[in-house]
């Protein structure tokens, strides 16, 4: 395939992926908006009013970056894992496998779909957040780059889960038992400086903490972690997961017998 044909193939996969989640927007776009609104009402307004300021910022405002990023993480992951496993389950992944489209384009197409849903839902949740609190923008480039990179990272994680999954149970195990705990313990609702020293140290082993704080820096200008370390961790994970996912696709793991 020449460059133009590869571009057309990538665009075809991307359009297919975007139309997939747009077609079922009641399942994909609406629920995170409602959930986030509830978070703002309960944690932000009712409980948050008792918490006071964090790093000199109102609690409601402080949790906004974490809630947006949490939504982006879960939706990017969920989009790719469910789409890829669904394609395996219905065997329509074979439509791509029999075509001359290279594996790296299949990978890019699926993570492009995850990125599109992550950003669409992130934008929707940001609009919801604006009904509750103004959202400052400390550094646009940091905010956008962290959002995009985090979405890519969890899209890649989702496709690896989808490649290994052999049942619908398998695509819910990682989100339930790994992703959700790490996200909640990643400083979405609190600053790690509020934790006892030992838990602060343990928290630093959680990669999501770096993403949440880097994004928080982009919006609010405050962070519990070094921004350079955060970027290094995110990009390192992306490179590693991309290489691993491509290796699995090239081997035909779970998709070729």
């Amino acid at each position: 395939m020449n460059g133009r044909a590869q571009y057309i193939a990538f665009r075809a996969i991307l359009i297919k992926e975007v139309l997939r989640f747009v077609r079922i927007w009641i399942q994909t776009i609406l629920p995170p908006m409602i959930t986030t609104a509830l978070y703002f009402v309960i944690f932000g307004r009712l409980i948050g009013s008792q918490v006071g300021d964090v790093h000199g910022i109102g609690y409601m405002e402080y949790i906004v970056p974490g809630l947006i990023l949490m939504t982006v993480i879960t939706n990017s992951y969920a989009n790719v894992v469910s789409s890829f496993y669904g394609a395996k389950f219905q065997r329509n992944i074979e439509e791509m496998l029999v075509a001359p489209v290279p594996n790296y384009l299949i990978l890019l197409g699926f993570i492009g779909g995850g990125l599109a849903r992550g950003l669409a839902v992130g934008l929707a949740v940001t609009v919801v957040a604006l009904f509750f609190t103004p959202i400052p923008l400390h550094n646009l480039w940091v905010a956008v780059s962290v959002l995009v990179l985090t979405s890519l990272l969890f899209s890649l994680a989702g496709i690896i889960n989808g490649i290994y999954a052999k049942s619908f149970d398998d695509i819910s195990v990682i989100p339930t038992f790994v992703l959700t705990p790490l996200t909640y313990l990643g400083g979405v609702f609190y600053s790690v400086s509020m934790l006892p020293p030992v838990w602060q140290s343990i928290s630093l082993a959680n990669p999501i903490l770096y993403m949440v704080n880097a994004f928080r820096y982009g919006l609010l200008g405050v962070s519990d972690v070094n921004l350079g370390v955060a970027y290094l961790a995110i990009v390192g994970f992306i490179v590693g997961l991309f290489g691993f996912a491509l290796h699995l696709l090239n081997r035909g793991h779970g998709i070729r017998s």
């Binding site: 133009r4 044909a5 996969i13 791509m96």
Partner: peptide, 8 residues
């Protein structure tokens, strides 16, 4: 149309 797209 998608299938055709995979063939460029």
């Amino acid at each position: 149309v998608n299938q055709a797209g995979y063939y460029g």
